[in-house]
Amino acid sequence: MKLTSTAFADGEKLPKEFAKMGANRIPPLKIEGVPGGAKSLVLIMHDPDAPMAGGFYHWTLWNIPPETAAIGEGEIPACAVEGKTSWGTSGYNGPQPPFGTHRYIFYLYALDAVIDLPAGSDVQALKKALSGHEIESASLTGMFGVLDNFKK
């Protein structure tokens, strides 16, 4: 399975329009090679460089249909469910590092089940629900730094 973006390459700078201090748009994501037995997909955006224990979660999305080939810029599949992030709200909230350059990792999981969690559930509940149901995973990392906030 593979996760890519037309907006940035793996390990490269995430453009400002996808940052919280920018337009805060969801970056375009391309999904390829989902295993045949997958019943749903899960997407988690995590900043492991954040100063709090366990990092910071910027976005959680589950019950993405396995046939989904892309998540368009600023759009999510209609039947997908968004959970609560470390900001305390549901939905996408892009990078806003308090210092330095951070990694923003998009983790994609193919599951053998559909997740039975209500919208707004936190990442701990999501991780517990997907545990044992993972068939395959992929990731994509974008970099964003505090100085990027001042560049056009």
Rank of each mutant, 00 (worst) to 15 (best):
A53D: 09
P66H: 07
F99R: 11
C79W: 05
T68Q: 13
T89Q: 09
C79D: 11
W87N: 06
S90G: 12
A78W: 11
G54Y: 08
G88F: 12
A78V: 07
G100S: 15
C79F: 08
W87P: 00
T85W: 05
W87R: 03
I71E: 01
G83R: 02
G54M: 03
F56H: 13
P66D: 13
G72P: 03
F56I: 02
G100W: 04
P77R: 05
W59N: 01
T89A: 11
G55D: 06
S86P: 03
G100D: 11
G74E: 04
K84C: 14
E73R: 15
G74A: 07
I71V: 14
P98I: 12
G88T: 10
G83W: 00
A53T: 14
P77Q: 14
W87L: 04
G91N: 08
W87H: 07
G94P: 10
T68D: 13
P66N: 04
F99D: 08
W62T: 00
T60Q: 00
S86L: 00
S86T: 10
F56D: 02
P77K: 04
M52V: 06
P97H: 03
W59F: 15
I76S: 04
P97C: 07
W87C: 01
G91T: 07
I71Q: 06
A69H: 09
L61A: 09
L61F: 12
A53R: 02
P65H: 13
Q96S: 05
I76L: 14
P66A: 09
W59M: 14
E73V: 10
I76C: 04
G91V: 14
Y57C: 07
F99Y: 12
N93C: 09
T89D: 14
Y92S: 01
Y57M: 05
A78P: 12
P98S: 10
Q96G: 03
T85P: 04
N63K: 11
G54E: 07
G74W: 01
G88I: 11
G83D: 03
G94V: 03
P66F: 02
Y92P: 10
P66Y: 05
G88S: 10
I64C: 13
Y57N: 02
G55R: 05
P77E: 13
C79R: 09
E73W: 01
P98Y: 05
N93K: 03
G83Q: 05
Y92Q: 04
E82H: 04
E73P: 10
G91P: 09
T68W: 15
A53V: 09
K84W: 00
